[in-house]
Design a protein around this nucleic acid. Sequence first.
DNA 1: GCAGAAAAATGAGAATACTCATCGTTGACG
DNA 2: CGTCAACGATGAGTATTCTCATTTTTCTGC
Lengths: 226, 226
Amino acid sequence: MRILIVDDDREIVDSIAIFLLGEGYEVIKAYNGIEALESLSENEVHLMILDVMMPKLDGIKTLMKLRESRNIPVILLSAKSEDADKILGLTAGADDYVTKPFNPSELVARVKSHLRRYTTLGSIGKQNGVITISGLSVNTENRTVKVDGEDIRLTPIEYKILELLARNRGKVFSPDEIYKNVWNENTIVGDNTIAVHIRHIREKIEINPKEPRYLKVVWGIGYKIV
Amino acid sequence: MRILIVDDDREIVDSIAIFLLGEGYEVIKAYNGIEALESLSENEVHLMILDVMMPKLDGIKTLMKLRESRNIPVILLSAKSEDADKILGLTAGADDYVTKPFNPSELVARVKSHLRRYTTLGSIGKQNGVITISGLSVNTENRTVKVDGEDIRLTPIEYKILELLARNRGKVFSPDEIYKNVWNENTIVGDNTIAVHIRHIREKIEINPKEPRYLKVVWGIGYKIV
DNA sequence: GCAGAAAAATGAGAATACTCATCGTTGACG
DNA sequence: CGTCAACGATGAGTATTCTCATTTTTCTGC
């Protein structure tokens, strides 16, 4: 993980760098907004610590410029603890706001917290293990599915839909919700695409697809697994 | 957006609720950790504001329990401004830490900031418009691509790869990076899948795919658009 | 320059996903 | 109890995506 530290006070930059290096992060330094933007376009940066008061290009303007194209976590640093400034910073697209003087350990904790969220992106609250629902078992470690002990071969999308439903046993998902969860998109897809996938899954996991044991439809709402 | 507020002091819960309702959020209330966890399993909650000091189940324990299964943003609330507490909270999986008494507007700003990041997930820094690179133009509004004025028909994946490269003109992406960006996954895919897609894109946007004008290869690293 | 290894491109075929037209089912209402 | 409209299921064709085997290109060291 690479962190860009931006402050016109070199001492501050160096001392933050020491703490972050100690935690195993890579560090890049910049001493004003212009330099920061240059660094950002040249390097792959995962998080930025940005001072608000700086010559040439101040922190807020730098942040706004950055947000036109990128969305990495940004922690603002400022001497003022005025609430108005905090709000301005957060509204401008900052992820956090820390006032000087600050406790280095707290700053490090905040850096970790933001990186954790940033890099955990798609994988929201995923815990691996085996989900068992009577004769159906979904192993989320190795992406395998069994019905009554028999291995079932599912395509990637089929597996994802089944995992989503299995993880939330009993909860009903509308086709639209399934789409958002599995495809990670909002774009509308042909409206019975989901129905077709459901059919394929049923053909594979149900003995008699006409009388589904697991993958049930809830009229007017969507599908669920019981 | 639905926000769960948890604090054993009903006055505080109510006053926070008023501010959030004023901003157009839906609000759910809970008065201890147990209630909070119940609410979370029954409702679709997008963010939680959680007091640390509570009877029955304290904030930190509640947070840890939540993190076993879900990853929504959590803002901790506490009377103590001790750095040690902050660090403990952030390490336990909190996204932010606010000390009482707090400025309601700041709290609202932080809520907005976290929700912005949480819901902007995959769409990192997306601003729509037309990206033009000499004869090539990518319209990110309606997902269309033109070469020398001619409309080009791309498949969804082809388009995404092209948009990624066009948005970062000149930047070189390794096949692995392209994969992570376009598919939103870490799972490894057959190692020349990307190469095949690149070929298809070239067949469509280049006059002579052997001598690409736009989509160039950088030996040993990856691809870029110039 | 030349040989050899590594990286990238290619062609073709298989697997997967999507679309469309049509049919069957469900539940509301008279 | 029968009709109707909305919803879901189905079959089959088409488009897209992936895989594999093979060839071509590029770079390195000699």
